[in-house]
Design a binder for these strands. Structure first.
Length: 744
DNA sequence: CAGATTCTGCTTTTT
DNA sequence: GCAGAATCTG
């Protein structure tokens, strides 16, 4: 016991040994959050306060769940299998599988990922002949998921105004389709489970008496439905109620755009009568200057629960700020610094290159590639999202549940077997008339075809060919081990032959083989080795980017993807108004504050060295854009910063980079040559507006909108319009003839 | 019906 | 600048 608790600081110890009912732990970045969570569980078990089967621990990612189990297992010789540790979705799925009948679902119900869901939505819109221009499928998807995350069914959505009416009707239609096809989207997993438990008292009591302790990781990221779900399971105020142990950080809430509700922290305090918030403020990761800078930045947000990170380590190096002429200039600066750091013995994998949006990675990748610096980009296409893998999975889904129209539509004509738009339309009409799934309708065609040999009855082609293919797959697979089923499906479907014939098909074939391997390891590791279980695994846990063998490489990722990670040196690039903070955040309530939290998360990833950089002009969407530095740089106390700048303007502000010393500065100098041409190119762009007395990149002021910077122009003479990025009012197009603009 | 070509429109994302 | 969708041609 004592061994478990040594080395904890007083606040961590208080959290781990908390003896009141429920607890809310405000855990700052790098404050040992995961350690507290896992040690808490180990403490509860070792002291005999509870047993593994009475513990429920919820996370957001499978990775976090696995890590938690592994760490507890390393601390205690305990049966971790008896604990319920998983993601919200994984746990809800588990409940729904166990009680699918009570939940009104078929035994082999299938899970739709975001892409699958979008495909269903597009079908619903088409069926209702709604123009995709009038009602973008993504908007309807957003509407449905939002409603579900608020716990609302189509009939419960507050409808005011005609447009909402249409959306609600489509939501209703989508629900009917999902029911008929036996499919469940991500939000539905949660809502279904919530409804099941609130309606079914016996089940609810069963789970309530089972789980004595419910621990929640990343609590600031929970949405309203997830909170309601926790509350329902915990049952505060009821006879048997669980103790909640929630760990989170309101300053690191960066997922409001997908429904996360930070207000849940305050609600938890109230609903579970939490006597006080435990604050973990000692940071074990970063040096003082980095923390001071991050603290100062986040101070600009209102309504925080409040917290100030501190460290026992020294101040360390200043935060470096690089002012670049162009995105190319920014890139070469970053690469030079990386090379210097690496030359000084730092592993490339301990360097992170962060950006606000994925589009920014291209220039960086290009530069790194040309400089032969190995790098790894996070967040690309995931294995189970690959076209060929999805195709194979679609065949497998039809074996498990042929009524899944979505799966059927994906592969009814892939590889091509002569079923075109025309035939498909007829089939869809048929299905609509009979009120059945497409599979049922196709089966009728097949039966009819058997009786009367029809024209398009070449073996293996047409509807009949497709139906007999799926039927034989269903029959042949009976009783075979899962990897063998998959191997046969890839072969018999014609996918293997199709990709074999394709020039670029080699990699796809490899991925299909990899799918068989994935099934083989799944069968070894999972208790349930059924096809249905594997398909659920592919939807819920297949998203993880597998570690493609360790190699020393610079880590490239978005700021969102960097959450929870740490590196010796961190570069945050593209710190420009419009990019970071992103211009779209202006229209959203509290959008700017979320951007600031994002910046806070980015900064607190760095242990020893932090670089911030911005460029005066950058290529975006195939157009050169001129930007002003991000306000976030101004929000950091200037004495914590060390300003660096390239010599593009003829003035050299650089006096060499301190810290690791000479190498860095000299590398910069040698690579700066040849960049002045770039600066000249920008200058030429700027001359474009000279006839009107203004130029791109110039600071101007407007009576109503305040000050800003000229981004772009179009037209000429009296028709000339110019685009100005105003510091306060955002980006606007103004007619030069009417707008009274003053040069600054 | 299938492959080739033009057109459009762009945050962040795990489950 | 690039990917996915819509549209065109053999």
């Amino acid at each position: 016991m004592t061994a478990l608790l040594t080395d904890l600081n007083p606040e961590q110890l208080e959290a781990v040994t908390w003896s009141h009912q429920s607890a809310l732990v405000l855990a700052g970045a790098g404050s040992g959050k995961t350690r507290v969570l896992t040690t808490r569980i180990a403490y509860l078990l070792q002291s005999g306060r509870t047993r593994p089967q009475n513990i429920l621990a919820v996370t957001f990612t499978n990775k976090a769940a696995r890590e938690m189990v592994a760490r507890i297992g390393a601390m205690l010789p305990v049966n971790t299998r008896a604990m319920w540790v998983g993601t919200f979705h994984g746990l809800c799925h588990r409940v729904l599988r166990a009680h699918h009948e009570d939940a009104g679902l078929p035994q082999a119900f299938q899970i739709l990922d975001m892409a699958d869901q979008l495909a269903v939505i597009k079908r619903v819109l088409k069926e209702r002949s709604l123009d995709e221009k009038m009602l973008p499928p993504r908007q309807l998807q957003w509407f449905i998921n939002n409603a579900k995350e608020e716990g609302l069914r189509a009939s419960q959505v507050d409808v005011h105004g005609g447009f909402n009416q249409t959306l609600a009707e489509c939501y209703q239609a989508y629900e009917i389709v999902s029911m008929r096809e036996g499919t469940v989207d991500f939000a539905e997993l949660l809502l279904r489970c919530y409804e099941l438990l609130s309606r079914n008292e016996i089940l609810r009591d069963h789970y309530r008496s089972r789980f004595e302790h419910i621990l929640v990781d990343e609590f600031q990221d929970t949405n309203r439905l997830q909170y309601k779900w926790i509350k329902l399971l915990a049952g505060p105020g009821s006879q048997q109620h669980a103790a909640i142990f929630a760990v989170g950080d309101d300053d690191q809430s960066i997922y409001a755009f997908r429904g996360a509700h930070v207000g849940n922290m305050r609600d938890l305090e109230k609903d579970f009568s939490v006597p006080k918030i435990i604050r973990l403020e000692q940071n074990y990761r970063s040096h003082g200057n980095i923390l001071d800078a991050a603290n100062a930045l986040i101070e600009h947000n209102k309504g925080r629960l409040g917290k100030n990170l501190w460290t026992a380590a020294g101040k360390g190096e200043p935060v470096r700020v690089y002012h670049a002429a162009t995105d190319m200039d920014e890139t070469s600066f970053i690469i030079d610094e990386i090379k210097a750091l690496h030359a000084d013995g730092l592993a490339l994998s301990d360097i992170a290159l962060l950006y606000r949006s994925n589009a920014q990675s291209r220039v960086l990748e290009h530069g790194l590639f040309n400089a032969s610096v190995s790098y790894r980009v996070y967040g690309g296409m995931r294995f189970f999202d690959r076209q060929e893998v999805k195709h194979a999975l679609a065949y497998l889904r039809l074996i498990a549940l042929p009524d899944d129209d979505n799966a059927l539509l994906r592969i009814i004509n892939f590889p091509p077997r002569g079923i075109g738009a025309r035939t498909l339309e007829q089939l869809q009409d048929q299905a609509a008339m009979l009120g059945t799934s497409l599979w049922q309708a196709a089966f009728k065609v097949y039966e009819g075809g058997k009786a009367v040999a029809t024209r398009n009855s070449q073996p293996g082609r047409g509807i009949a060919g497709f139906v007999s293919l799926v039927l034989s797959m269903q029959q042949d697979g009976e009783g075979l081990p899962l990897p063998e089923i998959i191997r046969r499906v890839i072969d018999q479907s014609g996918l293997a032959a199709h990709y074999q014939a394709e020039r670029e098909g080699g990699e796809r074939l490899e991925n299909l083989k990899e799918l068989i391997n994935a099934a083989t390891s799944f069968v070894h590791e999972s208790e349930d080795d059924s096809l249905t279980a594997f398909l659920a695994h592919a939807s819920l846990e297949g998203g993880e980017h597998q570690a493609e063998g360790y190699q020393d490489a610079v880590q490239l990722m978005t700021v969102h993807a960097a959450k929870g990670l740490e590196f010796h040196s961190v570069f945050i690039s593209g710190l420009e108004e419009g990019l970071f903070p992103h211009e779209n955040s202006r229209n959203e309530p509290d959008g700017l504050e979320e951007e600031r939290r994002l910046m806070y998360v980015a900064m607190t990833r760095a242990r020893q060295r932090l670089y911030l950089s911005y460029a005066e002009s950058r290529m975006l969407h195939g157009q050169v854009r001129v930007n002003i530095p991000s306000r976030f740089i101004d929000e950091i106390p200037q004495d914590l910063l060390k300003r660096l700048r390239s010599d593009f303007s003829g003035r050299s502000f650089r006096q060499g980079v301190s810290g690791t010393g000479q190498t860095v500065a000299s590398t910069i100098n040698s690579s700066q040559k040849g960049r002045s041409t770039m600066a000249a190119a920008v200058g030429m762009t700027s001359s474009g507006l000279n006839s009107a007395g203004f130029h791109v990149g110039q600071q101007v002021s407007h009576a109503k909108f305040g000050t800003g910077i000229i981004l772009n122009y179009e037209g000429s003479g009296t028709d000339m319009r110019i685009q100005v990025n105003f510091h306060q009012a955002g980006t606007k197009w103004l007619s030069l003839a009417y707008a009274k603009l003053e040069p600054l």
